[in-house]
Design a protein around this nucleic acid. Structure first.
Length: 791
RNA sequence: GGGCCUGUGGUCUAGUGGUUAUGACGCCACCCUUACAAGGUGGAGGUCGGCAGUUCAAUUCUGCCCAGGCCCACCA
């Protein structure tokens, strides 16, 4: 068997992918009796292009999938696409230069579907090229009818349990997307703003000063608060003040949430400027006065400012206050505001009808469930815990958008009562379908719910979607709770938390046994990749240039949970490793004609190598069991380059060429190489498969290295002496190399006689022949010395 | 402001309560050695972020500080 001098990674990887596909190497076997390892693959959001950061974290999950498969697990590794919701809408709008608002809904939804399909194909190409070992026949889309059905069923079941409710309530609102959003979708942004000190008049004509950054909310002012402990203002409590320009009276009240150190210590309470306002409204039972509409424009309550955008209204009101001498001063400040993470727009609080998942009452339950799951790395649990402790809002799951899973709900035109779809009519689109029953009031006239579900309400069901819940109880039993949820650390709150909540509601059980949190693949300077920053690196470009194996090798180079900056030159490392494996295989191929038989007696150097390898296998296995793939890789890498290539192979050459103890060398070479290929297989699935096919397939049973089983340690006679002899001989060889280097001699240069000093000459002497032959020394005089030295 | 994480030769990284602190890239020198020059060998380069403490001993443990990251709070 001969291998060509250089592998062509491109055609090699293409060929191997075709082979995997054709042979169904990664197919989940629902009938197998082997233990199942199920993976809840993150369905990527369909929002544009995948970059190297995506490749980074998906590769890490794949390392585990491949390891577990080699350990004999029946791996359930599906793929999904999250293509409903805002990101896909926005992408469609950008791609086709359209606005959802300005066209028939159905037409827009069709365009979104079309957009999504095209992007899915591109995504799949990338993940496929990377060598993800998914079973692609298990692919789902969150927008497809089958998934819609499950998502709607989930809603109906939650409704029955009293876990969802609809309510007119202050809601976090994005004026740009014109939809309600959830707490988790908020991001903060530091902006420049101005503290405006405005005069309010008391009934007795005296004036008080109030500082605000949002004078446009003056028409929404409901009351004024001072701190009850604040001696300066105690006398104001119970009095009334007149709101400037808008000219109406509001009460002055005391509340400890008013901070004496902020502004003037007097705060105006408006519906709704911020979360405190929302709290005040409910605490004191104020009727909200809403002056900003759903597009972010001021309404009739704002009088002459009606129709203005928030920022314009602010400027206009400030100008008018100035004119009337009511603006005392302006102090520029920087402060953080909440924005919608998808579009960066400052959010408002509006009074709207929305659907909520009631979940604030069960925080302890979620914590308990979270504690039962093994988090890798462990400390990531703290983020989950931290999030739950800070939760303040029920989960708003309705979105005033178009492309998504519809609510299976109508409202009675007569009495307004909610009418829910029957489970057997799902998936349902209330815009074109009708309820099966009449309303309790007898009416048959219904208004459809136009909103769609928050995309996370669907993607929080992925373990159940994968298990084909609730129809397929057998599959559910087999794969649920899922063995592994892999994702990056930024979506612990979005996805992990929501999934745990939803699955607890539906099954009473936490949905995962393990959660593995990866870091981010960032650009050279540690920034996230994004189109707007112009720092996006495309995985396919890298794969073309360096191979998928090299890309994966890069992704395995930091420990789990750590971020990694992408530097193109680092790809060389993986490429070199693949080439080295290839060349080592070529060397082995030159000597291995058939599967070598186990020799009667192992040469002492071979025994040493096998025992070192055993240790490596143990260490790598332990690392993988703790999801420390990078440790496993480093262990294998060091052994391969150092012990195996630099020393062991050099030490057996003389035996291979001379024939002395050749059987032992061949047997060791064959097995050590095979086991090392297996250690590398999760990281470099292509090159290891190619070598396996060319060199080992004929004599090994498995049709793919990825089904060939994880290496087991060899039960050779444990010989402590062999280990000492091997290590001593390595040290002696190193000393002789140093000597030759000092004399600027080639390593092949023959020397007549040298003297070797070594603390353990007894064992060094046992490998005298190997040392001599390897280093081409005719005679060695061994002397005991505290330092290892050759002269 | 709170939680969690990170800070190791020029760059990136491993690791440990105890001899000269791991490896890679880059750098220098030498070597065509019949698997591999996308290689081999040897070498230079680090007060392990700062300060204090615990200890016979700290890069490793504790506290504080500084810098960076992610998440949360703050928004009058």
């Amino acid at each position: 068997m001969e291998l060509p001098p250089r592998p062509d990674f491109q055609s090699l990887e293409t060929g191997i992918r075709a082979f995997w596909e054709q042979e169904g190497i990664y197919k989940f076997n629902p009938y197998s009796k082997m233990p199942v390892y199920s993976i809840d693959t993150p369905p990527p959001t369909i929002s544009g292009k995948l970059h190297i950061g995506h490749a980074f974290s998906y590769a890490q999950a794949d390392f585990i999938a491949r390891y577990k498969r080699m350990r004999g697990f029946n791996v359930f590794y599906p793929f999904g696409f999250d293509n409903n919701g805002l990101p896909t809408e926005r992408l469609a709008e950008e791609t086709y230069k359209i606005k959802a608002k300005n066209m028939p809904r159905k037409e827009f939804v069709d365009i979104c579907l079309k957009t999504s399909e095209a992007i899915e194909a591109q995504y799949k190409e990338v993940f496929f090229a990377m060598g993800l070992s998914c079973d692609w026949s298990l692919t789902y889309r969150t927008i497809e009818p089958k998934v819609q059905k499950k998502s709607q069923l989930s809603f109906l079941k939650l409704y029955e349990k009293g876990r969802v409710y609809r309510k007119l309530a202050p809601t976090i609102w994005c004026p740009r997307c014109e939809t309600a959003i959830a707490q988790v979708e908020l991001k903060d942004k530091e902006v420049e703003s101005v503290f405006n000190y405005i005069l309010f008049e008391l009934e007795d004509g005296k004036k008080i000063e109030i500082a605000t950054t949002r004078p446009e909310l003056l028409p929404s002012c409901c009351a004024i608060f001072v701190n009850p402990e604040d001696m300066r203002y105690k006398h104001l409590i119970g009095k009334k003040a007149r709101v400037p320009i808008f000219d109406f009276l509001v009460p002055i009240m005391a509340d400890k949430r008013a901070d004496p150190n902020k502004g003037t210590g007097i705060v105006m309470f408006c519906t709704f400027g911020d979360l405190t306002d929302v709290e005040w409204a409910s605490a004191y039972g104020f009727e909200p006065k809403i002056s900003i509409d759903q597009s972010g424009l001021l309404n009739e309550l704002a009088g002459k400012y009606k129709g203005m955008r928030i920022k314009d209204a602010r400027a206009a009101i400030i100008e008018d206050l100035k004119q009337n001498g009511l603006l005392v001063r302006q102090i520029p400040i920087k402060h953080n505001v909440n924005t919608h993470e998808r579009c960066d727009t400052e959010i408002e609080f509006l009074l709207t009808n929305q659907w909520f998942v009631k979940y604030l009452d069960l925080k302890e339950t979620y914590l308990k469930a979270g504690r039962k799951i093994k988090w890798w790395p462990k400390h990531m649990f703290a983020r989950y815990e931290n999030w739950i402790k800070g939760l303040q809002w029920d989960w708003c799951i309705s979105r005033q958008r178009y492309f998504g899973v519809p609510f299976p709900v109508w409202y009675c035109k007569q009495c307004g009562l909610e009418m829910l779809a029957d489970p057997d009519q799902l998936p349902v689109d209330p815009l074109k379908d009708f309820p099966k029953r009449r309303c309790k009031c007898g009416s048959t006239e219904f208004e459809p719910e136009k909103d769609v579900l928050d995309t996370w309400a669907t993607s929080a069901l992925t373990p159940l979607i994968n298990a084909d819940w609730p129809e397929n109880e057998k599959l559910l039993k087999k794969i649920y709770p899922m063995s592994l949820r892999p994702n990056a650390h930024d979506i612990i709150t979005f996805w992990d938390f929501n999934t745990i909540v939803m699955c607890l509601f539906h099954t009473g059980k936490a949905p995962f046994e393990n959660i593995m949190i990866s870091g981010h693949g960032l650009d050279r300077h540690g920034r996230k990749m994004s189109k707007s920053k112009g720092n996006v690196v495309l995985p396919l470009d890298i794969i073309k240039k360096y191979s998928a194996d090299a890309l994966r090798f890069w992704a395995s180079s930091v420990k789990l949970g750590e971020d990694l900056n992408f530097k193109e030159e680092d790809l060389q490392i993986g490429l070199r490793n693949a080439t080295k494996l290839w060349n080592t295989a070529r060397f082995a191929a030159m000597h291995l004609k058939a599967k070598p038989k186990k020799p009667k007696r192992l040469h002492i150097i071979d025994s040493w190598l096998i025992q070192e390898l055993n240790e490596v296998i143990d260490d790598a296995t332990n690392a993988f069991e703790a999801y420390e793939y990078s440790k496993a890789k480093t262990i294998a890498e060091n052994f391969f380059w150092n012990t195996f290539c630099d020393y062991y192979i050099e030490m057996i050459k003389y035996r291979l060429y001379s024939g002395k103890d050749k059987d032992s060398a061949l047997w060791t070479l064959y097995n050590a190489l095979l086991l090392q290929l297996k250690l590398f297989a999760p990281f470099m699935p292509f090159i290891t498969e190619e070598i396996y096919q060319k060199l080992f397939k004929a004599s090994e049973r498995a049709k793919s290295i990825h089904l060939s089983g994880w290496p087991e340690t060899y039960k050779v006679v444990r010989s402590k002496i062999a280990i000492s002899v091997g290590r001593a001989s390595v040290e002696c060889i190193a000393a002789i190399r140093k000597l030759k280097k000092q004399k600027n001699l080639s390593l092949a240069h023959e020397l007549e006689e040298i003297t070797l000093y070594h603390p353990d000459i007894k064992n060094a002497k046992k490998a005298a022949e190997d040392i001599k032959e390897t280093m081409r020394i005719k005679n060695i005089i061994f002397k005991k010395g505290s330092e290892i030295l050759a002269t």
